[in-house]
Protein backbone atom coordinates (compact mmCIF):
# COMPACT_ATOMS: atom_id res chain seq x y z
CA UNK A 1 0.00 0.00 0.00
CA UNK A 2 1.46 3.32 -0.91
CA UNK A 3 2.24 5.50 2.01
CA UNK A 4 0.08 8.32 0.77
CA UNK A 5 -2.92 6.03 0.59
CA UNK A 6 -2.28 4.96 4.12
CA UNK A 7 -2.05 8.56 5.23
CA UNK A 8 -5.22 9.41 3.42
CA UNK A 9 -7.11 6.64 5.13
CA UNK A 10 -5.59 7.67 8.42
CA UNK A 11 -6.79 11.19 7.81
CA UNK A 12 -10.30 9.97 7.21
CA UNK A 13 -10.38 7.52 10.04
CA UNK A 14 -8.72 9.53 12.74
CA UNK A 15 -8.85 13.15 12.00
CA UNK A 16 -6.29 14.90 14.16
CA UNK A 17 -7.25 17.86 16.18
CA UNK A 18 -7.07 21.05 14.16
CA UNK A 19 -7.04 24.47 15.77
CA UNK A 20 -6.98 27.97 14.41
CA UNK A 21 -4.60 29.83 16.49
CA UNK A 22 -4.02 33.56 16.65
CA UNK A 23 -1.02 35.32 17.80
CA UNK A 24 -0.26 38.90 18.40
CA UNK A 25 3.14 40.38 18.54
CA UNK A 26 4.01 43.89 19.50
CA UNK A 27 4.00 46.22 16.54
CA UNK A 28 2.38 43.73 14.28
CA UNK A 29 -1.10 42.91 13.28
CA UNK A 30 -2.65 39.88 14.88
CA UNK A 31 -1.87 36.77 12.89
CA UNK A 32 -3.70 33.54 12.36
CA UNK A 33 -2.47 30.06 11.70
CA UNK A 34 -3.72 26.54 11.61
CA UNK A 35 -2.05 24.47 14.13
CA UNK A 36 -2.11 20.72 14.29
CA UNK A 37 -0.22 19.08 17.00
CA UNK A 38 1.60 15.89 16.10
CA UNK A 39 4.09 13.52 17.54
CA UNK A 40 6.92 15.14 19.45
CA UNK A 41 9.15 12.48 18.00
CA UNK A 42 8.81 13.81 14.56
CA UNK A 43 9.94 17.14 13.38
CA UNK A 44 7.32 19.79 13.29
CA UNK A 45 6.60 21.38 9.95
CA UNK A 46 6.09 25.11 9.50
CA UNK A 47 4.14 25.19 6.29
CA UNK A 48 4.11 28.55 4.50
CA UNK A 49 1.71 29.49 1.70
CA UNK A 50 2.52 31.19 -1.55
CA UNK A 51 2.43 34.87 -2.50
CA UNK A 52 -0.63 36.74 -1.17
CA UNK A 53 -2.34 33.39 -0.31
CA UNK A 54 -3.49 31.97 3.01
CA UNK A 55 -2.97 28.71 4.80
CA UNK A 56 -6.23 27.58 3.26
CA UNK A 57 -4.67 27.41 -0.18
CA UNK A 58 -5.39 23.89 -1.45
CA UNK A 59 -1.93 22.49 -1.66
CA UNK A 60 -1.11 23.90 1.78
CA UNK A 61 -4.33 22.62 3.24
CA UNK A 62 -3.78 19.12 1.87
CA UNK A 63 -0.21 19.01 3.06
CA UNK A 64 -1.28 20.25 6.49
CA UNK A 65 -3.72 17.47 6.91
CA UNK A 66 -1.51 14.79 5.40
CA UNK A 67 1.61 15.67 7.31
CA UNK A 68 -0.29 15.94 10.55
CA UNK A 69 -1.84 12.62 9.75
CA UNK A 70 1.65 11.29 9.30
CA UNK A 71 2.32 12.38 12.85
CA UNK A 72 4.00 15.68 12.27
CA UNK A 73 3.08 18.75 14.17
CA UNK A 74 2.08 21.21 11.50
CA UNK A 75 1.78 24.94 11.84
CA UNK A 76 0.44 26.65 8.73
CA UNK A 77 0.39 30.42 9.38
CA UNK A 78 -1.23 33.01 7.17
CA UNK A 79 1.07 35.93 6.71
CA UNK A 80 -0.82 39.05 7.71
CA UNK A 81 0.54 41.19 4.87
CA UNK A 82 -0.41 44.08 7.11
CA UNK A 83 -3.99 42.85 7.64
CA UNK A 84 -4.91 41.61 11.05
CA UNK A 85 -6.19 38.07 11.13
CA UNK A 86 -6.24 37.96 7.38
CA UNK A 87 -8.60 35.35 6.07
CA UNK A 88 -8.52 35.81 2.37
CA UNK A 89 -6.02 36.15 -0.36
CA UNK A 90 -4.91 39.67 -0.78
CA UNK A 91 -5.85 41.20 -4.09
CA UNK A 92 -3.14 42.19 -6.46
CA UNK A 93 -4.64 45.69 -6.60
CA UNK A 94 -4.40 46.21 -2.87
CA UNK A 95 -1.89 48.53 -1.37
CA UNK A 96 0.86 46.08 -0.68
CA UNK A 97 2.73 47.69 2.15
CA UNK A 98 4.07 44.40 3.41
CA UNK A 99 7.66 43.37 2.84
CA UNK A 100 10.00 40.42 2.92
CA UNK A 101 11.15 41.53 6.30
CA UNK A 102 7.61 41.42 7.64
CA UNK A 103 7.25 37.85 6.44
CA UNK A 104 10.57 36.83 7.98
CA UNK A 105 9.55 38.48 11.20
CA UNK A 106 6.25 36.67 11.30
CA UNK A 107 7.97 33.33 10.55
CA UNK A 108 10.27 34.00 13.31
CA UNK A 109 7.43 34.80 15.61
CA UNK A 110 5.59 31.65 14.70
CA UNK A 111 8.74 29.61 15.31
CA UNK A 112 8.87 31.24 18.67
CA UNK A 113 5.23 30.31 19.15
CA UNK A 114 6.16 26.69 18.29
CA UNK A 115 8.95 26.84 20.65
CA UNK A 116 6.47 27.87 23.23
CA UNK A 117 4.62 24.72 22.42
CA UNK A 118 7.70 22.70 23.20
CA UNK A 119 8.75 22.09 19.67
CA UNK A 120 12.46 21.86 19.19
CA UNK A 121 12.82 20.61 15.67
CA UNK A 122 11.19 22.29 12.77
CA UNK A 123 11.39 21.75 9.03
CA UNK A 124 10.42 24.78 7.02
CA UNK A 125 8.14 23.73 4.17
CA UNK A 126 7.07 26.36 1.71
CA UNK A 127 5.17 26.53 -1.50
CA UNK A 128 6.11 28.80 -4.33
CA UNK A 129 6.87 32.29 -2.94
CA UNK A 130 6.58 30.77 0.54
CA UNK A 131 9.50 28.49 -0.34
CA UNK A 132 11.59 31.53 -1.17
CA UNK A 133 10.50 33.31 2.00
CA UNK A 134 11.27 30.18 4.06
CA UNK A 135 14.69 30.13 2.39
CA UNK A 136 15.10 33.82 3.20
CA UNK A 137 14.29 33.16 6.84
CA UNK A 138 16.63 30.22 7.02
CA UNK A 139 19.31 32.20 5.29
CA UNK A 140 18.93 35.42 7.20
CA UNK A 141 17.75 34.25 10.62
CA UNK A 142 19.61 31.10 11.52
CA UNK A 143 17.47 29.33 14.12
CA UNK A 144 18.55 26.17 15.83
CA UNK A 145 14.99 24.92 15.72
CA UNK A 146 15.10 24.81 11.93
CA UNK A 147 16.39 21.43 10.87
CA UNK A 148 15.73 21.57 7.20
CA UNK A 149 14.09 23.30 4.33
CA UNK A 150 11.73 21.86 1.73
CA UNK A 151 10.77 24.15 -1.02
CA UNK A 152 7.91 23.22 -3.30
CA UNK A 153 7.86 24.98 -6.63
CA UNK A 154 10.24 27.58 -5.23
CA UNK A 155 10.11 30.80 -7.12
CA UNK A 156 12.40 33.75 -7.01
CA UNK A 157 11.60 37.41 -6.49
CA UNK A 158 11.60 39.08 -9.84
CA UNK A 159 9.45 41.23 -12.03
CA UNK A 160 7.59 39.55 -14.80
CA UNK A 161 8.92 41.94 -17.41
CA UNK A 162 12.42 42.04 -16.17
CA UNK A 163 14.04 44.53 -13.95
CA UNK A 164 12.13 47.55 -12.73
CA UNK A 165 13.00 50.74 -14.67
CA UNK A 166 14.75 53.05 -12.32
CA UNK A 167 12.89 56.19 -13.31
CA UNK A 168 9.46 54.76 -12.99
CA UNK A 169 9.86 53.12 -9.76
CA UNK A 170 7.66 55.37 -7.68
CA UNK A 171 4.64 57.63 -8.13
CA UNK A 172 3.60 60.64 -6.12
CA UNK A 173 2.51 58.48 -3.28
CA UNK A 174 5.82 56.56 -3.34
CA UNK A 175 4.12 53.56 -4.87
CA UNK A 176 5.28 51.58 -7.78
CA UNK A 177 3.07 49.50 -9.95
CA UNK A 178 4.78 46.62 -11.62
CA UNK A 179 3.95 43.19 -12.88
CA UNK A 180 5.13 41.13 -10.02
CA UNK A 181 4.72 37.46 -9.42
CA UNK A 182 1.29 36.56 -10.79
CA UNK A 183 0.03 40.12 -10.42
CA UNK A 184 0.02 42.14 -13.56
CA UNK A 185 -0.25 45.40 -11.66
CA UNK A 186 1.28 44.94 -8.32
CA UNK A 187 1.14 48.24 -6.45
CA UNK A 188 3.36 48.65 -3.48
CA UNK A 189 5.67 51.11 -1.86
CA UNK A 190 8.94 51.00 -3.61
CA UNK A 191 10.73 49.66 -0.59
CA UNK A 192 8.25 46.97 -0.06
CA UNK A 193 8.52 45.73 -3.59
CA UNK A 194 12.25 46.08 -3.46
CA UNK A 195 12.35 43.86 -0.42
CA UNK A 196 10.97 41.07 -2.50
CA UNK A 197 12.91 41.86 -5.58
CA UNK A 198 16.01 41.66 -3.50
CA UNK A 199 15.56 37.95 -3.54
CA UNK A 200 16.45 37.61 -7.12
CA UNK A 201 17.26 34.27 -8.72
CA UNK A 202 20.88 34.82 -8.24
CA UNK A 203 20.45 35.56 -4.57
CA UNK A 204 18.25 32.55 -4.12
CA UNK A 205 20.81 30.29 -5.70
CA UNK A 206 23.49 31.96 -3.72
CA UNK A 207 21.64 31.67 -0.43
CA UNK A 208 20.86 28.03 -1.12
CA UNK A 209 24.51 27.42 -1.36
CA UNK A 210 25.05 29.06 1.97
CA UNK A 211 22.40 27.26 3.93
CA UNK A 212 23.44 25.40 6.95
CA UNK A 213 20.53 23.06 6.89
CA UNK A 214 19.67 20.60 4.19
CA UNK A 215 17.46 21.93 1.56
CA UNK A 216 15.28 20.07 -0.87
CA UNK A 217 13.31 21.55 -3.69
CA UNK A 218 10.40 19.62 -5.20
CA UNK A 219 9.57 21.00 -8.59
CA UNK A 220 6.89 20.31 -11.12
CA UNK A 221 8.04 19.00 -14.43
CA UNK A 222 5.62 21.28 -16.21
CA UNK A 223 5.78 24.35 -14.00
CA UNK A 224 5.38 27.26 -16.40
CA UNK A 225 5.79 29.96 -13.80
CA UNK A 226 9.44 29.42 -13.40
CA UNK A 227 12.18 31.42 -14.93
CA UNK A 228 14.28 30.05 -17.67
CA UNK A 229 16.25 27.01 -16.56
CA UNK A 230 15.35 27.68 -13.00
CA UNK A 231 15.17 24.02 -12.09
CA UNK A 232 18.49 23.43 -13.74
CA UNK A 233 20.04 26.24 -11.84
CA UNK A 234 18.64 24.80 -8.62
CA UNK A 235 19.98 21.42 -9.51
CA UNK A 236 23.32 22.93 -9.77
CA UNK A 237 23.26 24.02 -6.16
CA UNK A 238 23.87 21.94 -3.09
CA UNK A 239 20.21 21.45 -2.60
CA UNK A 240 18.34 18.35 -3.55
CA UNK A 241 16.02 18.94 -6.40
CA UNK A 242 13.25 16.50 -7.00
CA UNK A 243 11.01 16.78 -9.94
CA UNK A 244 7.52 15.46 -10.28
CA UNK A 245 7.14 14.82 -13.92
CA UNK A 246 4.07 16.34 -15.41
CA UNK A 247 3.16 18.38 -12.37
CA UNK A 248 2.57 22.08 -12.65
CA UNK A 249 3.24 24.84 -10.21
CA UNK A 250 0.42 23.86 -7.84
CA UNK A 251 0.95 20.11 -7.77
CA UNK A 252 -2.71 19.41 -7.75
CA UNK A 253 -4.67 16.52 -9.07
CA UNK A 254 -2.89 13.23 -9.20
CA UNK A 255 0.44 14.87 -8.44
CA UNK A 256 -0.47 15.84 -4.92
CA UNK A 257 0.20 12.27 -3.84
CA UNK A 258 3.59 12.26 -5.47
CA UNK A 259 4.25 15.52 -3.72
CA UNK A 260 3.23 14.09 -0.37
CA UNK A 261 5.34 11.02 -0.87
CA UNK A 262 8.33 13.13 -1.65
CA UNK A 263 7.74 15.45 1.30
CA UNK A 264 7.40 12.51 3.65
CA UNK A 265 10.54 11.03 2.20
CA UNK A 266 12.35 14.23 2.83
CA UNK A 267 10.99 14.36 6.35
CA UNK A 268 12.50 10.93 6.84
CA UNK A 269 9.30 9.08 7.20
CA UNK A 270 10.13 6.80 4.36
CA UNK A 271 12.88 5.87 2.14
CA UNK A 272 12.99 7.13 -1.37
Amino acid sequence: MPIWLFLLLATLVSAPRADLVESTWPGQAPARAEYRAGSPDKPAVLLLHGFLQTHEFPVIHRLTESLNSAGHTVLAPTLTLGIPLRKRSLACEALHTHSQADAIAELDAWLGWLKGKGVRSVVLLGHSFGSMQSLAYAATRPNPMVKGLIGISIIEGRLSGGRMPAKTLADDQGFVTQPFSFCKKYRAPQASLASYLAWSPERVLREVGRLRVPATFIMGGKDERLGPDWIGQLQRTRATVRIIAGADHFMDGEYEFDLLDMVLEELGDKRP
Partner: peptide
Protein backbone atom coordinates in the same frame (compact mmCIF):
# COMPACT_ATOMS: atom_id res chain seq x y z
CA UNK B 1 -13.05 44.32 3.63
CA UNK B 2 -9.66 43.24 4.90
CA UNK B 3 -7.97 46.18 3.32
CA UNK B 4 -10.07 48.38 5.59
CA UNK B 5 -8.53 46.51 8.48
CA UNK B 6 -5.18 46.92 6.83
CA UNK B 7 -5.70 50.70 6.84
CA UNK B 8 -6.81 50.73 10.40
CA UNK B 9 -3.54 49.04 11.34
CA UNK B 10 -1.32 50.74 8.88
Amino acid sequence: WEETLQQLYH
